[in-house]
Design a binder for these strands. Structure first.
Length: 217
DNA sequence: GTCCAGGGCCTAC
DNA sequence: GTAGGCCATGGA
């Protein structure tokens, strides 16, 4: 048992499966991944609901909106000008390079697909990996602020470990199991929201006992 | 009034 | 190549 697996077991016992985006379309997941950048999920949900209600969750329909119109809709998530530009550019790329089909995009092999999306403006490693994992169903682990904070605070990683090093550790430790990746990323986010936002380590946290039991990375 | 949220881009050194 | 500033809203 390694630390990644131990964390997963503890958290899934505590809170069960999170089932993020279990009933969402690929396009909805891609839009959500952009909208959620540095923003709370509750805001994103409201905007996604609004888009659904107005039946706008389609590539061509979003392209038909003016920038002003889209900005107005997504305003509550913050950074709305940038995010409007990112969404528009993504829709244009999907239309012109992939014949308007996300399935065409997802025909690409994982590492090439990752490099392709990393070229898109507004698509950094976390956003791309979120899409790869939850929309394209690839075994890619998502590292976010909560993951870094968790690993650093407990001494399971170094401050200067970069994104890929941390992702690789989880990927290998968890045996390339995409379903475990989906759940653990969601569970770590949940953990981060509930506990330990400010204090270095919170003794109410379900993982706190790992410290006293000297579990090593 | 201050802090922060499921990041990423751009610029200056 | 990397640290720091910037993007922006709204709830706690």
């Amino acid at each position: 048992m390694n630390i990644s697996n131990t964390i997963y077991q503890i958290l899934v016992n505590e809170w069960g499966h999170q089932k993020w985006w279990s009933n969402s379309s690929k396009f909805e997941i891609m839009i959500s991944a952009i909208l959620t950048q540095n923003t709370s999920w509750e805001r994103v949900e409201k905007v996604i609901d609004k888009l659904k209600k107005n039946e706008l969750l389609k590539i061509q329909l979003l392209l038909n909106l003016s920038n002003d119109e889209l900005e107005e809709i997504i305003k509550p998530v913050g950074f709305y000008r940038q995010k409007t530009m990112y969404i528009k550019q993504m829709c244009k790329t999907l239309t012109h390079k992939f014949d308007g089909s996300i399935d065409n995009l997802f025909k690409t092999e994982t590492s090439k697909l990752r490099l392709e999306m990393l070229k898109w403006k507004g698509f950094g490693p976390e956003t791309v990996d979120t899409i790869l994992l939850y929309a394209a169903k690839r075994p890619v682990f998502v590292v976010d602020t909560y993951t870094r904070r968790l690993m650093n605070r407990h001494g399971w990683s170094n401050q200067n470990d970069d994104y890929d090093k941390l992702a690789k550790k989880f990927t290998v430790d968890l045996g390339y199991d995409r379903r475990v990746f989906e759940e653990l990323h969601a569970l770590i986010v949940h953990l981060g929201k509930v506990y330990c936002r400010k204090e270095p380590i919170c003794n109410k946290c379900p993982l706190s006992y790992l410290l006293t039991n000297q579990v090593s990375a």
